[in-house]
């Protein structure tokens, strides 16, 4: 299993990346951590003519940064650096909780957060988390840059909404508000595997009412984000949570069969994991509210 030949480019500035993409367009793939791309190349499931290696860009940040209500990560921020970041733990607790589920330590040491978002794998954790947090990405090209909300970022399996000449220079994770609570749940056969189903929950407390948004992975062509109807305090004493999740699961998710799980099993998982995530996130939102 060796990759097919390609032309390798090593730009040193973001501008050089822009210029290369302007010239090469769809012929080129961006190579950052390579932890999703290189297996595909080794298996010759894909053989792009050009690879643009970001690893030698000058003056790139190595870790997350705080910027205008967001924790931002640049193109060379490794997943392990986010995992170890106190800033992320404090400001984007859902991302911190989720990192533990993303592949394995050695993969996270090379893999980048931006790369995982750009890869747009509907079974991956980070796109679903970005979507449920209503984060955004910054795309750039030789003609300028634009900010894309997470909800518009993913177009299909392994397909993002960037133009051929664009690439991602930043992913922006909204800082958690005091009244918010979060939870992440997934079921994978082995630790670190792609999950059969996973879900991220964001809960917000306003008085006695809790609003919860869910972001599912592995349940459609793209991460599926949805909001439950507002839940009163009594909902958590009854099966109302389960019922609300069930309605969302039945109505909005579109899983497929594969060798590990059927549609029915995935739907079951989506209901159970979703309900657990809702309850956990809501409980944390409660606590968060009391703290403030």
């Amino acid at each position: 299993m060796k990759p097919a030949p390609f032309t390798y480019h090593r730009p040193e500035t973001r501008g050089e990346v822009d210029a290369l993409l302007a010239e090469l367009g769809s012929e080129a793939k961006i190579l950052a951590g390579g932890q999703s791309l290189i297996p595909i190349l080794n298996m010759r499931l894909s053989s792009p003519a050009h690879l643009i290696d970001l690893n030698h860009l000058h003056d790139e940040t190595a870790g997350p940064a705080l910027d205008d209500g967001h924790v931002t990560v640049g193109p060379l921020v490794r997943q392990s650096s986010v995992e170890r970041s106190e800033l992320v733990t404090e400001r984007v607790p859902l991302l911190a909780e989720t990192m533990d589920f993303v592949a394995h330590p050695a993969i996270r040491n090379r893999g980048t957060v931006v790369g995982s978002i750009a890869h747009a794998d509907p079974a991956a954790e980070l796109p679903a988390v970005l979507a449920v947090l209503r984060g955004e990405v910054v795309a750039r090209s030789a003609t300028g840059r634009r900010t894309i909300p997470a909800g518009e970022c993913f177009r299909g399996p392994l397909e993002n909404s960037l133009e051929d000449t664009e690439w991602l220079e930043e992913v922006r994770w909204p800082v958690a508000a005091a009244d918010q609570g979060f939870a992440f749940e997934e079921f994978a056969r082995r630790s670190g595997d792609y999950a059969l189903c996973g879900v991220a929950a964001r809960a917000e407390r306003a008085g006695d009412t809790t609003t919860v948004a869910l972001g599912y992975l592995g349940m459609g062509d793209v991460p599926v984000c949805t909001e439950l109807p507002p839940l009163g305090a009594s909902a958590f004493e009854t099966d109302e949570v389960e019922d609300a999740v069930a309605r969302v699961v039945e109505g909005q998710l579109d899983p497929v069969d594969d060798i590990h799980a059927t549609v029915a099993f995935r739907t079951h998982l989506a209901r159970r994991l979703g309900a657990t995530a809702v309850r956990r996130a809501a409980a944390k939102a409660d606590t968060a509210g009391q703290d403030s």
Binding site: M1, K2, Y8, R10, L31, G34, Q35, I38, P39, N42, M43, D53, N55, H56, S80, H104, P105, A106, I107, N109, R110
Partner: peptide, 29 residues
């Protein structure tokens, strides 16, 4: 395995464990 799952090829790159089968040598210049 040459697809990053088995970990036999793990080495330290700048002090951190990483898969040498999921890294082109030229990247590690």
């Amino acid at each position: 395995c040459e697809h990053g799952v088995c970990g036999c090829c793990t080495v330290l790159i700048d002090g951190e464990p990483a898969r040498s089968c999921l890294t082109f040598a030229v990247q590690t210049d």
